[in-house]
Design a protein around this nucleic acid. Sequence first.
RNA 1: GACCCCGUCGUCCAGCGGUCCAGGACACAGGCCUUUCAAGCCUGUAACACGGGUUCGACUCCCGUCGGGGUCGCCA
Length: 445
Amino acid sequence: MGTTTRDNHIRVRFAPSPTGSLHVGGVRTALFNWLFARGRGGVFILRIEDTDRKRSQEELGDEIIEELRWLGLDWDEGPIFQSRRFNLYRNHALNLLREGKAYRSEPDGAGGTAVILKVMPADITFRDLVYGPITVSGNELKDIVLLKSDGSAAYNFACVVDDHEMGITHVIRGEDHIPNTPKQLILYQALGWTPPSFAHLPLILGEDKSPLSKRHGSTSLRAFREGGFLPGALRNYLALLGWSPGGDRELLTSSELVEQFSLKKVIRRSAVFDYQKLLWMNGQYIRKSSPEELVTRLQPLLADTEWGTVPRERLKSIVSLLGHRLKSLKDFTAQAGYFIDREIIYDPAAVSKYWTGEGVGGILTEVKKEIASVEPFTEKGLEKALRGLMAQRGIKGGDLIHPLRVAITGQKDSPGIFEILLLLGRERVLSRLEKALAYIDRIQK
RNA sequence: GACCCCGUCGUCCAGCGGUCCAGGACACAGGCCUUUCAAGCCUGUAACACGGGUUCGACUCCCGUCGGGGUCGCCA
């Protein structure tokens, strides 16, 4: 408990560079920073590292900000753009130059000179909050570029200056930054500053154990949003990649995540990203969501489709019927196609399985008659009427339901048939039955 | 190549020297339920990389081997 007094001072940051879309690795880093800050009453800062004028793209910075918001990782300060802080870096570099700790390089082709810190080779040891003590042998260390020839700040320098200026207490970042840490420690020393604590996170790999990249499909946060994933599911899944609360708990709410999270329980070995498990978890979250919530998440995905004009209330009834069967919101259009008013396309497999039997046409004719007159037109009323018909003809439920399902949905599978009849409405069902009858007549001849 | 990190079921995690012939989850297989599919429930297959130590006793500690990964830019 001795550390709790300091907890209020905790300040962490997520510092992506806008040279590409935010991918799951970066998102996981952001999430762990956020969990750490939120669990300890700390401050979470967003910093955009756009010092590279050539590779940074403003739109990507905007995208990162937008996607982070969608994920629900809210920050307390920022976004701070490094590109607007060149003077700050310059002043500190000039100081080091004046103190004789740094020197200028030979002019490059354009006449510009870089400012470079002199480094005395020495072994460097630091205590990583996740990996424990790490020692890097001194002969690995070379002089460190502070300012590039074009006057902009080099990564390690800008990073150290900002982390210090922003009062960062814990640097939580990917394991690929471990080799940068000794260099940054040297910079802190040269500048006479106290370094923050460091915590490195294991990497996330693709199924072939190579680092996640475009080859492994779309792994950007945006792709997951557009792919119908829920932010809560993504947070939960990503939190479990490289960390666990101990024991067998897997489904945790965000507040439980915040409560339970600790750097001490972060795993040291890199993890393979398992899309299947994410999908399963997304299904779990979908099932826990109300139709109202699902529709809200669904509508943006539907905007440019034939569903774009379907009224929200209508959407809500359909979602409450089959929303809980989805693993991803994106499956919706594929599963709910028969609720759109257009020609039903009969699945050939369904036709050969359920429409080739002898009495199918006869049964559906009677079903049609029954549905035309059934009162009240409710789920109960429909079921009573059709069950009555089955009894009267001495057939099993499936003998009537399967052919009927194909007629009104075109598919082999669907949610409960009576609910669908109700939602489709009498007129639609009748006209679909009529078309089905004609079709059956044709193929059975 | 040099430096650093890592090594439990196919995958993600649990395990913190004995209670482990190793537990949970995803995936997979079979079953139940059921108008179908999904869900749900039940059952099953499947792992401590290898070799030395240390110890009365190692998945757990140490060393080595092998394997995987990271970094070696005036990129971040």
